[in-house]
């Protein structure tokens, strides 16, 4: 998201990928394990309008620091030294822009291999680079994503080329989308002053918890105890937590209040966003005795509003 703000990204929906793409690159991503349906539905064996033979019409490249299970579904595997993605993309951009780097080897990859890869990208009818957490959680972090988006933009001078992140976790794109049209910002939004403020690092959840700033937490359909760094998750044990979740999780174990809610997409209808930002309408298929998420949340909000208005009356309006 931060990288996107530095200048956008060439992107399209997975339907375009399925129907048009003849070059697929998975960089720092292992879809065989992390997104098992991706390969068959969109990027690998799926047959599309311009790819009637499915897998035979596509060239698949995997770039990773080790041989992942995805490699056996690929035509080409390029092994990169850990933490060198930024340097490799810098050189690939140079090649794409007509410069010759003064080096034979970058990030453990021979220069000729990168020249061949860039040439293949240039000649592709439509190339797609999918990148995963192998890029975003390594040295350079969001700047690695920036380098990828810049490479994608450089390649669009030569061919149709897309760069798409392999977003993990169910509906994480939905959270970003809704936050964007509600507040103008995708994440790390602070409402402390009564209006939204955005600053990753200052207001993002891991940093806030590491600095032990929150004194209460409301956790909706998330599993921070399992997913966040230990020191950040530890702070949640020391503060009052309200968890809205349909099932028992590690987070509900430390929660002071657990509110069971309906399972979105199973027992309540709604909308979830696919990784390419396409909203998918979901229907309820099972009955559940629990309320929808918005009922306890709106009850809490109404109660806070009531307390706030009482505070204003007692302290002469000084409380915001």
């Amino acid at each position: 998201m931060v990288a996107l703000q530095l200048g956008g990204a060439p992107a399209a929906t997975l339907g375009e990928v399925k129907n048009r793409a003849d070059l697929i690159i998975f960089w720092g991503s292992n879809p065989a394990e992390s997104h098992p349906r991706h390969f068959t539905r969109y990027s690998g064996t799926a047959k599309g309008r311009m790819n009637p033979n499915g897998r035979k019409d596509r060239h698949v490249v995997v770039v990773d620091i080790r041989k992942t299970p995805s490699v056996k579904y690929s035509d080409e595997f390029i092994q990169i030294k850990p933490g060198n993605d930024y340097e490799v993309f810098t050189v690939m951009r140079m090649i794409a822009n007509g410069h010759i780097p003064d080096t034979d080897m970058v990030g453990g990859i021979p220069l000729q291999t990168l020249i061949d890869l860039v040439e293949r990208c240039k000649k592709a009818r439509m190339g797609v680079l999918f990148f995963g957490q192998g890029i975003t959680e390594t040295k350079g972090k969001h700047q690695n994503s920036t380098a990828i988006y810049q490479f994608g933009k450089d390649m669009t001078k030569h061919s149709k080329f897309l760069t798409l992140p392999m977003r993990g976790h169910y509906n994480v794109v939905g959270s970003g989308n809704v936050m964007c049209w509600q507040t103008g910002y995708p994440f790390a939004v602070n409402f402390g002053k009564g209006y939204p403020r955005f600053n990753p690092g200052e207001f993002s959840v891991v940093d806030l918890l590491l600095r032990r700033e929150p004194d209460v937490a409301v956790i909706v359909a998330a599993e921070p105890i399992d997913h966040l760094p230990y020191a950040a998750a530890k702070h949640l044990e020391n503060i009052p937590t309200i968890v809205l979740d349909p099932r028992k999780t590690l987070t509900t174990k430390i929660a002071k209040v657990i509110i069971p809610v309906k399972h979105a997409g199973v027992s309540v209808e709604g909308t979830a966003y696919r990784m390419d930002h396409i909203p998918i309408k979901m229907q309820a298929v099972l009955e559940s005795p629990w309320p929808k998420d918005d009922i306890p949340l709106s009850t809490i909000i109404n109660r806070i509003k009531k307390i706030r208005s009482e505070e204003k009356k007692t302290d002469g309006g000084k409380a915001a």
Partner: peptide, 9 residues
């Protein structure tokens, strides 16, 4: 007034 968390004091 100075903002402390979400309050102005």
């Amino acid at each position: 007034l100075i903002t402390w968390g979400n309050k102005k004091l």
